[in-house]
Amino acid sequence: MSVNKTKVHLISGFLGTGKTTALKSLMEQKDPNEKWVIIVNEFGEIGIDGAVLSDNGIPVAEIAGGCLCCTAGAQLGTTVQKMLRDAQPARLMIEASGLAHAASVIDDLKVKPLQDQLEIATVFTVVDPRQFINPDYAQQALYKDQIGVCDVLVASKTDLCTPEELEQFRENAAKLFPPKAKVVEVENARMDIAWLDIPVIEKPRYRIKALPDNTMGFQSQGFTFPAGKDFDGERLTNFFNDLPKFTEGLVRAKGVFQVMGTWVWLNWVDGKWGASQVSWRRDSRFELIAKSFDADLIEKKLNEALE
C-alpha cells in the first residue's frame, strides 16, 4: 500500500439529528475519481442507514449491535482492515451510532497496524440546537462526549429553531473548550464537502479568541502539544498546584491532557481545581487567563510535566 494514508472522517451525533442525511449530502458532492468507503454503526440489529446509503456504488459495511465502542471494538478493526485492503480508499467515512462514545472509536483506530494506515481527519458532530441549549441534554456524559470529540460542530434543523434559540446556541458554542475549528448552521443536515479539508493542525501557542467580558488588563494564552505525547499525572498535579505562583491575578486555567494513554480535563477556578475524563483526542492543550504571566516560563513548566 502507498504511503498515502486513508483519511478517516467520523460523523457523530445524537439519535435523530440527521447524521445519515449529512453523510448522503457529502456523497452527492463527492469527486467521482476519489474512492470512499463507508462504515455505518446501527444501534439495532437491522441496518437501515446502510440500505439508505448503499445505492451509489460506494462500498458500505455495517456493524450492528450498537455502541461502536464496547461491543464493536474488535469488529471495527477487522472491518476497517478488510475495507482498506479491498478498496484502498482515499477516505473512510464512519457514521457512529447515536449512542456511541465517539472518542472510543478514535482510540480503536489509533492502534497498530491501523494507525500507520489512517489519518484522523476532520471529525463532525451533528446537533439539534434546541437539544444543545437544553441543560438536560448538555449535562449527559454521552452528549458531552459527542460535542467534545469533534472539530466541526454542525447545527442541523436550524429551520425549526427560534431566533432566540439560535442566538443561545451560538453563544454556548463559542464558549466550548477546546474550541472548534468551525461551527456551522445548516438546514436539513446539508453539508459542504469543502469542510472535509478544514485544517485541524495544532499550533504550539495561540491566543484565545474571546476573553471574558472585561478589559481590566487580563491576558490570555493557549498552548498545545501533539497527541501521542503523554503527560505525567503527578507532575501535572504539581503544575496546577504551583500555577498561582507563576502568574499574577490568575482567574482561569483549564486544559485537556493525555495522561497514561487516557484523556483528562483539568479545570482551575476560584482557587480550586478539579479533574474529569474527556472525549477530546486531537491534542493536549492548556489555556489560562491572568493579569500577567511569563508565557515562556509556563511553556517550560508544561514541557517539564511531560513523561
Rank of each mutant, 00 (worst) to 15 (best):
T158E: 08
F286W: 03
D283L: 00
D197L: 10
K7P: 02
I201V: 14
F177Q: 01
V3G: 15
T21D: 13
V80R: 11
D151S: 08
L302E: 02
R285D: 00
K245F: 14
T224M: 02
N303E: 13
G148Y: 00
I133D: 13
R205T: 13
L114C: 02
R190W: 04
I46C: 04
S292N: 15
V8F: 06
I106F: 01
A253H: 02
N214T: 11
A227V: 00
T215P: 01
K110N: 10
K7S: 11
L236P: 00
K19P: 12
A173Q: 06
N188I: 02
K30I: 09
E304P: 02
I94D: 06
L84R: 06
D128S: 14
D128Q: 11
P226Q: 11
A227F: 02
K301E: 14
S292D: 11
F223H: 00
N172T: 09
V105R: 02
M216K: 07
A181L: 05
S12A: 08
I298A: 03
K229G: 03
M93L: 15
F14H: 15
K272D: 15
A295Y: 04
D270R: 08
E34I: 11
L10A: 03
K203I: 08
T20P: 15
L160N: 05
K82L: 13
D242Y: 11
Q146V: 09
T122V: 14
K19E: 08
D107S: 10
G271N: 14
E95T: 07
L68S: 12
P89A: 07
Y137W: 15
I198V: 15
E62W: 12
L109K: 07
G16K: 12
V186P: 01
R85C: 07
F286C: 00
E202S: 14
V52R: 10
Q75M: 10
